[in-house]
Amino acid sequence: MTETIKAIIIDDEERARRLLSTTLTDHCSEIEVLAQCENVPEGVLAINRLKPDVVFLDIEMPEYTGFELLDFFREVDFEIIFVTAYSEYAIQAFEVSAIDYILKPIRIDKLETAVERLKSKLSSTTMFDRLETLKTNLASDYIEKIAVPVSDGLIFIKVNEISYIEADGSYAKLQLINGSNMLISKNLKFFKDLLKNQNHFYRVHRSHLLNMHTIQKYNRHESLVILENGTKIKVARDHKSSFETALKDLHSDS
């Protein structure tokens, strides 16, 4: 018999609470719903009393939103799975912040996957940082910070600290300005979409997404970009002219 996962549901709509609770009971037997709360303060009391492993948290609620739950805790030692009717844009912010979520109306299979992920979950010690990252990203017009999973947990990186991202099959190698790098199980397309509103990131080559702020020199004849750390990156021939325009625009902007 697997270990029970203690859960609390916080949602202002009774019907939504009942739906989630029923679905979890019927399809995710390892979850035990300890309490259902209709607002954040009630939820805080329940969490403190019942010490759950996971909180299913609605976002749009009267008075306090789901995000404001964070303000009631100095440390968060439970997982949070947001249950939201949010739009696509917000979903991206969840993903890069390594915050799990399920969308309303609830799909049973998605819920099961979320619970599966929960079981193999990385330590919830980073929950606080992940929530902070989420809040930062939601408050901004574009993604500012991303939570990158590494072997022993998560690293939070400001996108402006990235020098370039190199494709490596279905993985991506993040090269940071400080010299370190990391392999992430997301493809380059993911990052390209992520950073599409930040025009100083430019895909110079099929395999390279480049932070143009870190360019030290551009050799036009050889179509070669030399970065501050000495790395040389080739600019694809068919990207050359648009890259040059982008480079010019960037410098005229700043």
Binding site: E13, R15, A16, R18, L19, T22, A85, K104, P105
Partner: peptide, 11 residues
């Protein structure tokens, strides 16, 4: 509204 309404129907 849409998804919450659908969520209610799902319930």
């Amino acid at each position: 509204f849409v998804f919450n309404a659908l969520n209610s129907v799902q319930d």
